[in-house]
């Protein structure tokens, strides 16, 4: 469900730009107004969502422990999968965010002749990691469009990314990996029956959107020439708040920019917020030290209990008969 709808939506978005830029000459709208709006929605939206989560307190410290706890000195603790200190938690979170530690554990269980067999399954981990890292690097590379003199760090990224020095213009590895990874992530939703069964439009849409963004980007860089001077003029104009949208740039650029804008604007309303959520996830970001350090529940309240006195009143005679000491004879 939702695949057709998502596909239609992405195609409609592309056609919209086509009509808007080619037909109605709305260069400034697509080149500046919409990107600005998207950026504002993104920033405010993300902050709003994170603040809203943050306002729900964490009443209990319930990390999911993934290894040996802190015990006697002679028992080796798994400090990162079951941290008992803040520094341990920081490492756990870094591993989670930058290396997808939990996904790395992934297994696949299959039934063979009545027996369940569990095997390691790293594909999702690999594709997920490749996708996120490439996306980040590509994003950083794009900063060259927003700075007058391209900073050294960005140049370094570019150089590394084009390590093999093939093609004119130089081929970026991240471009290939990104498309490959997104394609895998998309295909598994269509091919694996269980994943297909749980997938929603909200799962296909961002994948197709990102794939379209990548493809338009690649087309622009390697195949369809755009007026690069015009592009830089526009992007620099955006950061200096004096955008000039040139008509000579080529519609493919506007499509690319518009899809990116949609992605940004869509972000805070969607599951893409998992980026912020993982940092706030109480099963991961807390130390397993409950018996050492008390965790406070801000809304804790007194509860009704059955007191010892009431208990003894119920059973005093029976207790006395059995020789169990009582408070009141």
């Amino acid at each position: 469900m939702g695949l057709g709808l998502s596909l239609t939506a992405v195609i409609a978005l592309i056609l919209l730009v086509f009509a808007g830029v080619k037909g109605a000459n709305l260069h400034l709208l697509f080149g500046a107004v919409i990107p600005y709006a998207a950026f504002i929605i993104f920033t405010i939206g993300v902050i709003y969502r994170v603040v809203k989560w943050g306002r729900s307190p964490v009443p209990f410290r319930i990390p999911t422990t993934g290894g040996q706890e802190n015990s006697f000195p002679w028992i080796k603790q798994n400090k990162f999968d079951n941290p008992s200190t803040t520094s341990g938690v920081i490492v756990r979170m870094l591993l989670e965010v930058f290396a997808f530690r939990s996904l790395f554990r992934l297994t696949k269980s299959e039934l063979k002749d009545g027996k369940l067999v569990h095997g390691s399954d790293k594909w999702l981990w690999l594709a997920g990691l490749a996708f996120h890292w490439c996306f980040l690097i590509i994003l950083i590379r794009h900063l060259r469009f927003f700075t007058q003199n391209v900073p050294f760090v960005i140049q370094l990224f570019e150089a590394l990314d084009a390590f093999f020095q093939v093609g004119v213009p130089l081929l970026y590895l991240t471009d290939i990996f990104l498309v490959g990874a997104v394609t895998y992530l998309f295909l598994r939703r269509v091919v694996f029956p269980q994943v297909k069964y749980i997938s929603l439009a909200a799962d296909y849409f961002p994948l197709l959107l990102i794939l379209s963004i990548a493809v338009t980007g690649i087309l622009m860089r390697y195949f369809i020439r755009v007026d690069i001077v015009g592009v830089k003029q526009l992007t620099m104009g955006l950061v200096t708040f004096s955008p000039v949208a040139s008509e000579s740039i080529g519609v493919i650029f506007y499509i690319h920019v518009f899809l990116v804008s949609v992605l940004f604007a869509y972000f805070p309303f969607s599951k893409l917020m998992h980026m912020g959520g993982v940092l706030l996830s109480p099963t991961r970001n807390l130390a397993n030290n409950n018996r050492m350090v008390r965790h406070i529940n801000p809304w804790d309240y007194p509860v009704h209990v059955h007191t010892y006195e009431e208990y003894e009143n119920d059973f005093r005679e029976k207790m006395k008969k059995a020789g169990i000491p009582v408070e009141k004879e």
Partner: peptide, 13 residues
Amino acid sequence: YRTFHVFMDICVR
């Protein structure tokens, strides 16, 4: 419960 709130929002299926 932040757990509940966050878990309702961030599953990517």
